Simulated assay, not measured.
Amino acid sequence: MKKQILLLSTCLLLSSLCFAADFSFTKGQRSAADLALDVQRKGPQVIELTKVSSGMTVLDLLGGGGYYSELLAEKVGNSGKVYLHNNQAYMPYIEKELAARLKDNRLANVIRYDRETDNLELADKQFDAVFFILGYHDLYHKAEGWDINKAQFLSDVLGALKSGGQLVIVDHSAVADSKTKHAQELHRIDQQYVIDELTQLGLTLVKKSSILENKQDSRMISPFKPEIRRKTDRFILVFEKA
């Protein structure tokens, strides 16, 4: 159990390290830290794979410090909205970044949405798109303070997606056919498993992308090891709800 707690803490802590020394968010401009992250995360290109456009309402699910939320806020414009969701387990690691990003109503169309995963309080058919970035494997990760009811969680999220709405999944690739075997220790999940699971729940896979592919990644190393940090082989899946 202590090992699991340490793994989760390390996961959350490292997700915010790139911002540890720079919370310099300026109204109307993206930070230098965010721009640097674009090289490895390719957030703008990922969003261009989707139908997100002006006036839409988007959920950034377990969105951490809001890197994607800021990009989405620009895409949906003043007539759209972005809900930046986090749960309490994330707060010790991302709250400073989160507060700095949203300070003084800097992103007026971004709504800070703190809710536990078992009580998301989402409305039916509320969102045009949901972005779930580097978090799907955590539906299968268990630790003290972290135990998501996957069936309820997915039911709530998919129920909040409009007909024709899109669910975007980006995650660290596990070795083929390993399913959820490496979600606990390596924080990875098998791409085909995600496709099969969400297809069975009624979604249609409409797009895949290899822009975050790294063939040098063995897929048998934790994403938080320095030698592979932000350079993992990652898959991108875009699903659509009927």
Rank of each mutant, 00 (worst) to 15 (best):
Val76Pro: 00
Val76Lys: 02
Val76Gly: 03
Gly77Asp: 07
Asn78Glu: 15
Asn78Arg: 11
Asn78Val: 12
Ser79Ala: 13
Gly80Glu: 05
Lys81Asn: 10
Lys81Met: 10
Lys81Gly: 00
Val82Thr: 02
Val82Ser: 04
Val82His: 00
Tyr83Leu: 09
Leu84Ser: 02
His85Thr: 03
Asn87Asp: 15
Asn87Gly: 06
Asn87Ser: 14
Asn87Cys: 15
Asn87Thr: 11
Gln88Gly: 09
Gln88Ser: 15
Gln88Pro: 01
Ala89Tyr: 07
Ala89Ile: 11
Ala89His: 08
Tyr90Gly: 00
Tyr90Trp: 08
Pro92Tyr: 12
Pro92Asn: 13
Pro92Arg: 14
Pro92Ile: 09
Pro92Lys: 12
Pro92Gly: 11
Tyr93Thr: 04
Ile94His: 03
Glu95His: 09
Glu95Cys: 09
Lys96Ile: 08
Lys96Trp: 08
Glu97Asn: 13
Glu97Gln: 15
Glu97His: 14
Leu98Arg: 15
Ala100Val: 06
Ala100Tyr: 07
Arg101Val: 13
Arg101Cys: 12
Arg101Leu: 15
Leu102Asp: 07
Leu102Pro: 01
Lys103Ser: 10
Asp104Ala: 12
Asp104Glu: 14
Asn105Arg: 11
Asn105Ser: 15
Arg106Ile: 08
Arg106Ala: 13
Arg106Ser: 15
Leu107Gln: 08
Leu107Thr: 05
Ala108Asn: 12
Asn109Gly: 07
